[in-house]
Amino acid sequence: MSDHKTISEIEGEIVEEFSLFDSWDDKYEYIIDLGKKLPPLDQKFKIDENRVRGCQSTVYLVADYRDGRVFYKAESDAVIVKGLISMLIRVLSGQKPDDIVNAPLNFIREIGMMTHLAQTRSNGLLAMVKQMKNYGLAFKVKDSFVNQ
């Protein structure tokens, strides 16, 4: 697993990719493109239990724990949110619970997308970040019981 990239390495890659864009339009075009490419979530996961509710857009998030790492799948009805989800999955999916819980996720600020995490109730993204970390925490706690 030595080729495994750390959270901060992936964050660095994203920040570098975004530094190539000169305009906000280009940034958004890229995010929209990511959103369109995000694989759809299987219908069976689109249940209330997996729903992260925002005021405007809805996000469904599921997590799976294998070999000490957390794997996420998610979808939203809004494409820009989907693009941001795609980046969060790229950064956090396949990481260890401890690293997920402690990830500062600075890339969001550095690529200028902080407004989407602001407390405006406008989307489920902030709630989604929280939920992703909650899964990390839950798996961490589960592990500590197993190891006792």
């Binding site: 958004y28 005021c55 405007q56 494409v79 820009i80 989407h116 406008s122």
Partner: peptide, 21 residues
């Protein structure tokens, strides 16, 4: 199209509208 996506892209042009319910 999702209203929120439209609202974000309009804001990107300095246009403030309301989106949602």
């Amino acid at each position: 199209l999702h209203p929120q996506d439209i609202g974000i892209l309009l804001d990107n042009r300095g246009i403030a509208v309301r989106t949602g319910h």
